[in-house]
């Protein structure tokens, strides 16, 4: 059953994994220097009277404007995307193509068939989301 779940959903799972690696990679690659730069600006700002503080803020804003303006808000739609590409096909694809007549007549109960798939996919989705969340936070 684990194999079957993987085989049927591997495309969505691979895309999900790539998305986490990609988005997380961008965030880490850009975020670490950005973090250091901000710390420097902040430190300069604290030393009140430093004339270069304003200039440094301008440089910081100029350097990281592009990253800050990436449409990070699309992450809000991630649950919708997961639902569309993982959740919906879970049952509807079987019903649409008639393959439920194959899957449900093997020597395994329907409730177990559904439970294993739900558990596995939920687990993977939660772990991937958690990873992404940790990186972005």
């Amino acid at each position: 059953m684990i194999w079957l779940t993987w085989r049927q959903h591997r495309a969505a799972l691979i895309v999900g994994l790539l998305a986490v690696v990609g988005i997380g990679g961008i965030a880490i690659a850009a975020g670490i220097p950005m973090h250091h730069a901000f710390a420097a600006v902040h430190a300069a700002d604290l030393r009140a009277g430093d004339a270069r503080a304003g200039a440094q803020i301008d440089i910081f804003t100029h350097n990281y404007w592009a990253i800050g303006n990436l449409p990070w808000r699309f992450l809000l739609f991630l649950p919708v995307l997961i639902g569309m590409f993982v959740g919906a096909p879970l049952l509807s694809r079987e019903l649409e193509s008639g393959t439920y007549r194959l899957a449900w007549t093997q020597s395994i109960s329907r409730s177990r068939w559904l439970a294993v798939r739900l558990e596995l996919l939920t687990l993977v989705t939660v772990v991937l989301s958690l990873l992404l969340g940790m990186v972005l936070y």
């Binding site: 194999w3 079957l4 085989r7 899957a103 093997q106 020597s107 395994i108």
Partner: peptide
């Protein structure tokens, strides 16, 4: 593989 996984 499916048959093997789902039938004793």
């Amino acid at each position: 593989h499916l048959g093997r996984a789902m039938n004793p």
